[in-house]
Structure formats: structure tokens, C-alpha cells
Write a protein that binds this DNA or RNA. Sequence first.
DNA 1: CATGAATGAGTCTTCATTCAT
DNA 2: CATGAATGAAGACTCATTCAT
Lengths: 222, 222, 222, 222
Amino acid sequence: MAKLNDTTGIMSRSAQRRQREKEQRFNAVLTAAETLFASKGYHQTSIEEIADLAEVSTGTVYFYFKNKEDLLMKLMQEIGFVLRKWLGDELEKTDSTLEGLSNVGVAFLQDFCVNYTEKITIFFRESVGQSREVEEQRRDLFVRLTSDIKDVVVTISNRLGRSFISGSSPEVIAVCIVGIYERIACHYLLWRGDSMEIMDVAGETASFMRGGVEHLFAPNGK
Amino acid sequence: MAKLNDTTGIMSRSAQRRQREKEQRFNAVLTAAETLFASKGYHQTSIEEIADLAEVSTGTVYFYFKNKEDLLMKLMQEIGFVLRKWLGDELEKTDSTLEGLSNVGVAFLQDFCVNYTEKITIFFRESVGQSREVEEQRRDLFVRLTSDIKDVVVTISNRLGRSFISGSSPEVIAVCIVGIYERIACHYLLWRGDSMEIMDVAGETASFMRGGVEHLFAPNGK
Amino acid sequence: MAKLNDTTGIMSRSAQRRQREKEQRFNAVLTAAETLFASKGYHQTSIEEIADLAEVSTGTVYFYFKNKEDLLMKLMQEIGFVLRKWLGDELEKTDSTLEGLSNVGVAFLQDFCVNYTEKITIFFRESVGQSREVEEQRRDLFVRLTSDIKDVVVTISNRLGRSFISGSSPEVIAVCIVGIYERIACHYLLWRGDSMEIMDVAGETASFMRGGVEHLFAPNGK
Amino acid sequence: MAKLNDTTGIMSRSAQRRQREKEQRFNAVLTAAETLFASKGYHQTSIEEIADLAEVSTGTVYFYFKNKEDLLMKLMQEIGFVLRKWLGDELEKTDSTLEGLSNVGVAFLQDFCVNYTEKITIFFRESVGQSREVEEQRRDLFVRLTSDIKDVVVTISNRLGRSFISGSSPEVIAVCIVGIYERIACHYLLWRGDSMEIMDVAGETASFMRGGVEHLFAPNGK
DNA sequence: CATGAATGAGTCTTCATTCAT
DNA sequence: CATGAATGAAGACTCATTCAT
């Protein structure tokens, strides 16, 4: 996962072990924070609780993270990394068709959200309305995701030989898609806590998305 | 706006005035909280700051509101009231057509969000990830809005003599619509802070929405 | 009971009524305070609660009493008055014999404490450890009661033609007696809350007291 | 005195020192609280004052004690421990005679009260009429002391081959004794603040007590 | 006189952060 | 490096008291 100091030089065995232990500690703290932030909320979680769960001291937390906010920032980075990695992989599997995009949407709800509920919770709930820095990073991640999706949408349109009704369409589409999946996930997974239901609605959600995208294609030719 | 004690009995003039002043104070505090929560954030705002801005003492704040959380709850109530009132009025103006729904979407971004940016900010950002009670109320409001929209969608489909691909479609549609408008508002208004841009994208957003809705109509078979 | 302004002059009927109402209000507040102080404790009782129970406003409380402490002071005065009145009456009934003193002791536990539990609670518990003024008044009442008892003890000894082993004996005896009855009341009534038990031990307590007094008589030498 | 964590395992020297310092801090805070509670009163003493006197920060007070009430509770524990330890030691010195009991009574006033005036003040004054928990602990201590004394009284009677006029006599006697010494201490030491006088009355108090006890012995008849 | 809304000083309490060992 | 005790600024909240009506 995350690397702390990528001092990829020659190292003695013991130095390697120490290096490994450091990374383990770093990840232990990060994981503990993820668990607690998701279940109790960012403000309701104290550094001491995180340290306890990670089986380290509070001081150690501050060795790896500048402060509580930094912990959340690093967590967001990790979440962003995992999410975009997943999205990239999924998108690659597709053949740049609307069908493929639909499949990714279904997979997002049925696979990603179900398996990474904590990450989703932090991204969609706990990181909201915190400090300016966190908000900025949150926005960045959203922008990047939007951009990823926009690119796919553009690719799809090219492949189909279609254009959009305006230059801003791809972005609007991407933002809409992100909004749809955010709220569907919140509504059916975080609030209703029902991973059955989300399976059911995944298909319809994808249909809705597809309909939206198609509706912004410019009238087809001639 | 908000009424405190609607003791609409016989009252002396002076009693009426005092009653009025009480309501004014209540609203002054609520408005101050709205302003500060929206600009600085809920946690970054202290009761003292709210009191100062409302030109009352901290004690007065606690006379009208049980505690800080209660202030946020009452604020959410007010926001919910205004938002649903606005939505209800707008929806009524439409003739239960997709065209009408699109217009409401446009108006939401171009009118409501621009004129009530603070309310939008609190609803979409500052009320997120707070205590269980606040989260519950937030969810309630979302559910109610979703329900409002679902009803319209059903009405439209009836009027068109069309049905949906599944029984859950109207709800999925409503959730998607809410998600779209939430994120579009956040993206273009709260983050970019550009009320020009939101004017531009309002139309395309409405188109996307319309496409999504239509795509969940069952094939219009004979 | 307590008089507020003893303006015993000529008064119009309405003035008399108003006077009466004032006294009623004064007593209502005092009684409410007594009830609440005894049941919830002095510090746990707010002026507002007292006002509510007395069915007046907080402002009215402050019209009759300088402040919260004054309320406790006046309450102590009332308690002191009732207690010393009762004691005086009871002692008068006796014929200045040890037997008579014993009877008073029994009556104190069986009658007074049972009928005036709230007053006892405030005197023995709630008035303890408050401000300097209250503590002083408490001490004064104790001193007065001690003095009352000392006088009786001296009278009894005179009547018996006996003297004490030292000049300070009567006072020591009185203080001991007060201590005995205070703790017996606390132990069996306030803590065990059992008014049955206190009936049982009243006799033995009186015996103990009697034995103590007699033991401080100087040897009945020629 | 008080031990915090009696981890009597193997410890490095420095760990031992740190452990010792922790206990010292704990005791410093406890002692500061004792001093201030006794002199200014529980409610009139703020945590900040205690921290100042103990030369620590307010945070440190909360590191060792859950809250202000806990501080009082722990103080009461300590007082109870010291008092019962002293009483146990003194009673052991006696040969279970009334004479011995009298001596303990004298020593209580002349030694204990004079040397531990603050503890006495808190036990007899400042811990009264606080929260339910504190009152409960206070009662517990009283009950325990009463029980200790009851046991001695029973032992004495056995040794003398005498019985009491009723089964409840030993307890009544014990409660009376506790009451006597409580009030004598308050009257002469806390109120008059005269440690001379208490020396004088100690003997007579003991005589009174002795007379009381003897008077509850059943007639020594054949 | 009675009312009850307004006041604001006073406290407890939390907890992120630091740093000596 | 890890530890965890110590720090202290910050803030929520209470409630006795006042005073305009």
C-alpha cells in the first residue's frame, strides 16, 4: 500500500525489517483511523482511540502524521488512490462503449461500495465539512474522478462518431454521474444499510445514467 | 418565517410587541448561525461568535436553543421547510410534463441555489457527518425530497400513459435526480463559486435528467 | 407563620387582602424551596424550579428574597423557629426530670423528625458546607439548641440537688445530646428511610442519653 | 499512602522513578484538593485553584481524576482509610474494656482531630449534601465506623459477661457514639477553632459516652 | 408588584499536541 | 523511535441575578 520513505537503496537485513515495521505501523494507524472515522465519525474519534486500536501510543501517531487533519488527508489520499485505481482498471476492461460504462456503474455499487464501505463512508460523509485543506483535497478527488469519467465519455462519443450538444456536455455528464452514484450509494447503502437493495437498483441506476448520457449527444448527423 | 409560540389568543398591544421581538431574536440567532456555519463551518463557529453576530448574549442563544446541536437541527428544519415549499410551488406551476420538470431543475440551479447559497451550503456540506440526530434529520429531509420528486415522476408517467421498467424505478429516478442536483450545485456553485457557469450548465443538466427519466420508461409497446 | 411587614396599622380591606396575598406568596416560595432543597439538594435546585413549584416568576422570588442564599437563610430561620418552639413546648410539659428529658428525646424522633422530615433534612444535610453566612446561622441554631438543652440539664440537676463533675459538664452534655439525636435521625430516618425502625430505637437512644447525663453528675457525696 | 498502579513487577530504575513521580503528582493533587476543600469549601474551589496549588495544569488533574466529584470521592476514600486505620490501631491497643474505649475517645479528640483537622472538616462538613454518589460513600463510611464501634462494644460486653437490654442496643450505642464525637469535634474544633478547649472536654465526653453505654447494659441481676 | 426574557461571568471539561525519558 | 504523561487553550453550557415593561 502506502510507502513512507521509499529509500530503495541497499539495506542491511535489520534495516529492512525496521523499514517493514515502520510501514506496518503507519498502515495500522491509518486502518484504525479509517475504521473509527467511518463508525464513530471524525470529530467523535480521539487520537487516543486510534492509537489504542492500532496498538501504538499517541506519540507514535504523531510521528507518522503531522496532526489529526493530516491523518484524514492521508486517508483521503489512500481512498482516492484505491478508488481511482479500481475505476481505471474497470474502465480498461470495457471497450469504450455505453454498455461498458453501464457495467462499471453496476460494479461500483455491487462490488466497490459493498467491499469498501468504510472508504465510501469517509469519502462521502466524514470528510465533508471539515477544514479548508480537507475540503480542497476532497474537491480535488471529485474533480479527478469527474475528469476520469469525462475522458471515458469523450472516448465513447468518438468511437460512436457522435458529438455533444455543447462543449461543456462531457463535464456536465461526468458531474451528474458522480452525483448519481454518490447519492445512490448513500441512500441505499449507508442509510438503509441494505446491501441487498443496492444489488437490485444497480441496473436501473445504470440505465438512468445511460439515458442521461445519450440525451446529451447531439442529434445524430445530417 | 419561524414562529416560536403561536399563542394566537387575545393579547395586549405590548404583549404582541414583545412576542414579535422574541421571534425577531430567535430569527436573528438562527440567521447568524446560518451565516457563520455556511462561511466558517459548524465546528469552527463558536456560540459566542453567533451571539455576537446576532447582537445578543450567549445566554440568550441558550434561551432559544437547547444547545449547539439544537441550533443546527432547527436550522435544518427551516432549510427543509423553505426548500420543500419552494419545490412544491415550482412543481405546481408545471403541468406535470417532463418539460415542466426540466424547468424546475433549471430554476433550482439558477434561482434557488443562487439566492439561498447559505442554505444549500449547510444542507449539502455543513450538516454532513455531525451527530446521529443531525444525520437522521438530514436523511429525513433527503427522503422527503426524494419522495416529492418520485410523486411527480409517477404523475408524469401516468399522464403520458407510460409505465416504468420496474416498480422501484420512480424511487431510483428520484434519488438520481437529487444526486445530480446536489453535486452540480456543489461542483459549480460551492467549489467554483461561479454563478455564471451554473447558469450555463443548468440546461444540460436538465437534459441529462430528462434522458435518464425517459430511459427508465418501459418500452412504449402497443 | 412568618410575617413579612408587620404593618399592623389601620388598613383598607383591599390593602389587607393584598397584604395577605403577599404573605401567601412569600410562604409559597419558602415552602417550595424547602421541598426542593430537601429532595434534590440545595445546589441541584435552581431558582426557576422553585418559582415554578411556587407558581410565581423568578422575579417574584427576588422580590421576597435577596438571593438564593437569603432563601436558605430565611428557611433556616423558619426551621430554627419551629424546632425551638417545639422543643420549648415539649420541655415545658416535663417536670424537669430526667424522665421528662427522655420523653422529649423519644418525642423528637417519633414525632418531630417524622412530621418535619424536610426541615430535618435541610438542617442536618442541605445547609451544611454552604457559604460562611449560612454556616454561621447553622452554628447559631446549634448553639441555641445546645443552650436550651444545657438550661434544662442544669435545672434538672438543681432539682435533684446534684452537681456536675465540672463547670463545663452541662455544655458538654448538651452538645453530646444534640450529636446523638442528629446522627440517630440521619442514620435511621434519612439514610434507612425507615420510620418504623426509628420508633424502635427511640427508647434506647433516650436511655443512652440518660446514662450519659447521670455519669457526669458528681459523686453524690455528702 | 495512595497507590495508583501497583504494578509490582520488574521495573527499570527510571521506570520506578517515573512511577514514583506519578504517585507524587496524584497525591499532590489530592492534598491540594483537601486543603482547599477544607478551607474554602468544595463548591467554592475551582479545579484551576487545585491545579495551581498542586503546581500542575488543569489537564493533569483530569488525567488522574475523572472529574471534580471523583476527586472528592477519592479524597473520601483516603479519609476513610486513614480514619479507620487509626481507629483500628487505637482499638487494638485497648484491652476491650470500657476504660480502653474511653481512652480511644479522648485520643480521637486530642490526637486525630487536632492532627487531621482538614480530613475531619471534609468528612463532617464539605462532603455533606453533595451528589448522590458522594452521599452514598459518606454513608458507607459512617456505617463502617459504626460497625467497627459496635463490634468493640459487643466484645466489651462479652468480656464483662453482660448483655444489652435489646438486640439493637449495640448498634444504637455505636450510632450515638459516632454522633457524640462528630458534634463535639464540630462544636469545639471547627466552630470555636479552639484546640485548647477540646483537650478539656475530651474527658467529660468520654465519661458521657461511658455512662451511655453502661446504661444500655441489661440489669446485672442474677 | 409581577413578569420572564436577557445577561454574562464563571466552570468544568475535552483533547490535540508536545516532549522528556 | 516509541512512549504516555503533561499541557493549556478553547468552548460549551449553567444559572443567579437584573430590569424594562
